[in-house]
Amino acid sequence: MTHPALDIGLTHYLLVTTTLVAAGIATILTKRNAIGILIGVELVLNAAAINLVAYNHFAWSAGKGGPAIEGVMFTAFIIVLAAAEAAVALAIVLNYYNNFSSVDVDQADSLSG
């Protein structure tokens, strides 16, 4: 039996992505800069993407005449969406900046109940 440190498996990847997602959440929660929040979101997205690929690699059984592809496909779409999201988000940030002359999200509380 090999040592678990040598036997890189799904668990190792999941540990890394968990750390990553925690960093992303922490970033989102602690940054007042709208772009910082965007960066946090990117971290979370990346963690999810790595998870999908890792699962695709380790856990998806090859039942259809070849190695699995679904996780990879999903990740590809994520990357596309992340790009789109970043574009929209930046547009919003710019708009916001134009209105408030700041990127401090805490100033945007006009929805306060």
Binding site: I35, V53, N56, A89
Partner: peptide, 29 residues
């Protein structure tokens, strides 16, 4: 994880596109 295509896309789209977009945003705001 044997997803070479994704690695490439990651570098091109993400690092090359999205990140640049963010840097633009930083510069603009």
């Amino acid at each position: 994880l044997q997803a070479e295509f994704l690695a490439a896309v990651q570098l091109i789209v993400y690092a090359g596109g999205t990140l640049i977009l963010i840097v633009f945003g930083i510069m603009l705001t």
